[in-house]
Amino acid sequence: MRKNTGSLIVTYVFIAVLMIIYLFPLFYVFNTSIKSKTEYIQNTLSIASSFRYENYIEAFNRANFASFIGNSVFYMVVCTVLSIMMAVFLAFPISRNYIKFSNAIYLLFIAGLFLPDATIPQFQMLLKAGLYNTRLGYMLGLMGGGGIPLFFFVSYLKNIPRDFDEAASIDGCGYFRYIFQILIPLMKPAIASMAILSAIGVWNDVIRAIIYLSNKSLFPITRGLHVFTGQYQNDTTLQMAALVMVAAPLLILYLFLQRYIIDGAVAGAIKA
């Protein structure tokens, strides 16, 4: 595919416009977050004259971000580990057809994608169970059973030869030991992709946190940001500093693990 100069220029202009639409807003947010309040009011578009990191300190303290971040990491770790473990233990026998009704069980999980929204009864159930406004209740509501990790793992496991299973069981290796010591290391790339995607999902959740949590000390960071921006509607610079603090971990994660994230997203979509 050779390109002539004309179409190459058009292409680069197209890319340039795209980059402006995608990068300028993020730059503008960052620029606003390091301005003083008066500087912002005088000219919203000016480049910040200095890096006012006080905005960050103030936002961090006023919003009580330390506790929100702690909560978010806790939810992230627990939900991710549990949902990945559940998906692995379910995906393995299904992909190998080691249990009765493997296909039926698989279909049952696929059907979940097309059923009505479960939020209202879920809320009622957690309320009745006394799990409303608890960490456990929130995480139960947040964790998807099965879903994309299951589909992804099932198809991934089909590429891992069955010989491994048999060799292991002949060696007298127990089932759980086999999963943890042999299978999971073999599934590393798949697990990494799904774990990161699931962690990002937990970090970014705000709706479940609005519905299932009422106590500030339990809020994850995105919910904390929502409350903070509601309270300081006039303090644009502070708001943006808070926003950057929520986005920064994701950005760093993304910089390092870009390929896993994108691979996971693509695979999840196509397998599903």
């Binding site: 009580n64 330390a66 506790s67 971040i69 770790v77 590393k188 990494a192 990161i196 760093i252």
Partner: peptide, 28 residues
């Protein structure tokens, strides 16, 4: 190549966890 990525991921996640736990502890 892939396992290198995985190690990086593990290191990063565990690093983040430690930071978070520390900040929670400090906040408490």
């Amino acid at each position: 190549m892939k396992s290198l990525w995985f190690k990086k991921a593990v290191r990063l996640v565990s690093g983040l966890t430690i930071v978070a736990l520390l900040s929670t502890a400090v906040a408490c």
